[in-house]
Amino acid sequence: MSYARRALAVAWKDLAVERRSKETLNALVFFSLLLLFVFQFTLGGDRERLAAVLPGVLWLGFVLSALLALGRTFLVEREHDCWEGLLLAPGDKSAIYLGKLAGNLALMLVVEALVLGLFVVFFDIDLGRALPGLLVVVLLGTLGLAAVGTLFAAMTANVRARELLFPVLLLPVQIPVLLATVKATEALLLGEPLGAVGHWVKLLLAADVVYVVVSLLTFDVVLEA
């Protein structure tokens, strides 16, 4: 099997499992719905104040669901004792990483689309012309989150207190992505064109490239033994 096909096989397996069990997706959708309540209650109903913090809150929602979703990346293998099976996959192990990353990315984007929809309805955001730019920022930001998240999930999968350790490791490393996405989203929602936040987009691009390349190079080391 070629490298790409092996990566696809892993992604396909994960998506098929998820499609049939809907274990993660159902809970995540419910969780993001609950987040909406939490934000509303903690921020109060004041529309103007809400509008000012909305980009940050939106990304907070994305990050919180990402922490839950990405942290579970290798849980299927662990819970069903398939870890060795995964390790037995022939050839370069980074194909497994790519497959897992693709699966995570797909899952995250579905959840994020939903959260964004809920925000539009409940917080009355006018996406309007911001949507194409926002899609670019969300895509790049999510890739950054998922790239490091998938790597760290593999690292914390077999560690004590992994539910705790995963966010503690991921959040500090993801601060650049968080800053870039929130600031870019803020500007876009104010009606500025994507070009006005070009430096943030470039930073996200650089971050994505760095994260994916490092993860590909080091994933072999993480999966050893």
Partner: peptide, 29 residues
Amino acid sequence: PERAARYCAVLGIVAALDIPLVHFSVYWW
């Protein structure tokens, strides 16, 4: 200890490469 060394080495490299990103993002922010 062997696994700790491996994982921490990976994290150490990721963290080091993150420093320039942190620097620029915070500076612009």
